[in-house]
Design a protein around this nucleic acid. Sequence first.
DNA 1: ATACATGCAAATCATTTGCGCAGTC
DNA 2: GACTGCGCAAATGATTTGCATGTAT
Lengths: 131, 131
Amino acid sequence: MHTHITKRSKQRDRIFHVLKRTRSHPTAEWVFDQVREEMPKISLGTVYRNLHVLKEQGKIQELDFGEGIKRYDAFLGEHYHFVCEMCGTVQDLEVPRLQDVNARVQEIVPERIRSHRLDFFGTCTKCSSKI
Amino acid sequence: MHTHITKRSKQRDRIFHVLKRTRSHPTAEWVFDQVREEMPKISLGTVYRNLHVLKEQGKIQELDFGEGIKRYDAFLGEHYHFVCEMCGTVQDLEVPRLQDVNARVQEIVPERIRSHRLDFFGTCTKCSSKI
DNA sequence: ATACATGCAAATCATTTGCGCAGTC
DNA sequence: GACTGCGCAAATGATTTGCATGTAT
């Protein structure tokens, strides 16, 4: 097997750039629409392919909140998310990471714990005010 | 709009029964195969429809660990999950729920926090021993 | 008798992939 | 020039849905 060498491409640069300038946890479709404004000929397949490459390179994160759609995030600082159950928007939470949960759970089970993920659900302020 | 009255059906009873007797967080496909052993003519569509009904009735839970497949669970006690990143198996964790995280986060953000979900990832003992 | 539920097959939706050509190293 | 990446369109895989018929109340 060959070592996989990743070449650079305008498309991938653009996709990464679009992701870096938002905090909205966009879907592949949204990224596609954004990039298309500057590169009208880009294809959705290219967007998906590059999102995977960027994920492999550790430059972005893939998120899944059980909506049946993947979301992407170029903000890699460890943080948790809040998902509004009414409108589906996702917000970063400026909450300190739980320090020792992994270790605590590790003491209880023999499985090798590597990471955890914590999501909060509820109603965002916008939706709350609409009720 | 009419009130939706849910009638009973052999298929749904069977599906619920199959889910209650396992702790393996099965997919719709797995449930389908199990039920099919006793009801060879049942269709996959019926399984999906009834999984949704059971979820609406609060009798089962729908889980999603970002694999692109939904999993179902008839064990409703509040608990966390451990997902093996190698083989994909999901285990219930006998770890006490975090008492006050919701409240702590609520103090920081104005959004109405209703619940949280905490998943752990790593390598299960079986897969660890294979390395 | 009146809905709701079923089986079947076709439809949908997000995502992936095969292919011939273009761009990068 | 060799190999990777692209655009396009077709394929895939999980889930949903329309319809004619069966079944519980």
